[in-house]
């Protein structure tokens, strides 16, 4: 009798352990999924359709969408002054990058290729280097090593502030012909995604 009781007891303990582990696992998974969703918000491209509009709680929210791209006047690697206004009426890709940023260097050759592909549509690609205090000649050497020939501009504090840059690089702004930001992305994306955003900029704001 006692032996049967012990058997039943052990079975009950075993089943209880399974239920407990299942419950714990469920909670753990829910917690991980929640955390993963939060991470996803931080790292996926921010676009108008996916935006919740809650920019106060999400520092990576696409804050510039639909707004006129802030004007700037910077110098390129040859010391020539380049202003956003110089390209009025053109679709523009404005790519913030840094020499230490591997994902930036992954995207930049694609921007170079796409600049050539959509040259007839007036596409302009501009890179803005976000290295802190790096000499122009070193940025020039890096851009040549990466294989880009589109204008690379040296930053000032104002342009980073005006474009409300986050802590992440790369950050890219796609500007339509009307000068408004049609897409804003953070982190590197596939070539197809870059091209889709470029097509959006080309197709937006024309007369």
């Amino acid at each position: 009798m006692a032996r049967r009781l012990a058997i039943v007891l052990l079975l009950v303990v075993g089943v209880t352990l399974i239920i407990l582990s299942g419950t714990h696992n469920l909670r753990q998974r829910q917690s991980v999924i929640k955390q993963a969703q939060q991470n996803e918000v931080a790292l996926t491209p921010a676009d108008a359709s996916g935006s919740s509009g809650d920019t106060a709680s999400d520092p990576l929210a696409p804050t510039m969408l639909g707004k006129v791209a802030p004007a700037f006047s910077l110098v390129d690697l040859n010391g020539k002054k380049v202003s956003l206004a110089d390209y009025k009426g053109h679709p523009i890709v404005l790519n913030f990058w840094a020499t230490y940023c591997g994902p930036c260097k992954l995207e930049m050759p694609w921007f170079q290729q796409l600049a050539g592909k959509y040259q007839a549509q007036g596409l302009v690609v501009l890179g803005i280097d976000e290295d802190d205090g790096m000499a122009t000649k070193d940025v020039d050497a890096a851009s040549k090593q990466i294989g880009v020939s589109y204008p690379i501009l040296m930053p000032d504090d104002k342009v980073s502030k005006d474009y409300q840059l986050s802590d992440y690089l790369p950050e890219t702004y796609y500007i339509g012909k009307d000068g408004k930001v049609v897409d804003q992305t953070i982190g590197a994306h596939s070539k197809n995604e870059l091209e889709a955003d470029i097509q959006k900029a080309i197709g937006t704001g024309g007369l």
Partner: peptide, 10 residues
């Protein structure tokens, strides 16, 4: 530091 898609300042 970086993750798969983006980098942070030094």
């Amino acid at each position: 530091a970086c993750d798969n898609a983006s980098c942070f300042p030094p």
